[in-house]
């Protein structure tokens, strides 16, 4: 199971890095989304994949009756999903605004902050 998951994570990362290396912002966004899922899967896998029952204590008991799965990786993944989702939403809006304002989806032509033809620094002093 771990080997299959590891291969899947590798696939996720491959796709994500390929997309992130693209010049187009919308592809980079997709890459961000996919790398986030890859990381979540990674945390899930390194938290040990077991066949135990969910970590829920039955009503009226104080401790689980049988061995349970480790709930911590799931909590970490949940947090990471929430944060990744909100940042993705923000980046999506930002990219959309940048596309409208700068009329550029291509990072090569986004040169407002760092002008391509920026003048040379003064040579005096």
């Amino acid at each position: 199971m771990e080997i299959a998951l590891a291969c899947l994570i590798g696939l996720f990362f491959t796709v994500a890095i390929y997309l992130l290396l693209s010049r187009s912002l919308i592809r980079m966004l997709l890459g961000i989304a996919i790398i986030g899922n890859g990381v979540n899967l990674l945390i899930f896998t390194v938290g040990r994949v077991t066949r135990e029952v969910p970590p829920i204590v039955p009503d009226g008991e104080y401790a689980p009756l049988e061995p349970i799965a480790n709930p911590l990786p799931q909590a970490l993944i949940l947090t990471a999903i929430v944060i990744g989702f909100s940042l993705f939403a923000f980046l999506l809006v930002l990219t959309y605004r940048a596309y409208q304002e700068l009329d550029a989806d291509n990072t090569d032509t986004m040169r407002v902050a760092e002008p391509e033809d920026s003048p040379r620094p003064p040579l005096s002093y």
């Binding site: 939403a89 923000f90 809006v93 409208q100």
Partner: peptide, 13 residues
């Protein structure tokens, strides 16, 4: 608050 403000901003646009 956060999600609906993003959604509304996009819809307004």
């Amino acid at each position: 608050g956060a999600i609906s403000s993003i959604a509304l901003a996009l819809e307004e646009d």
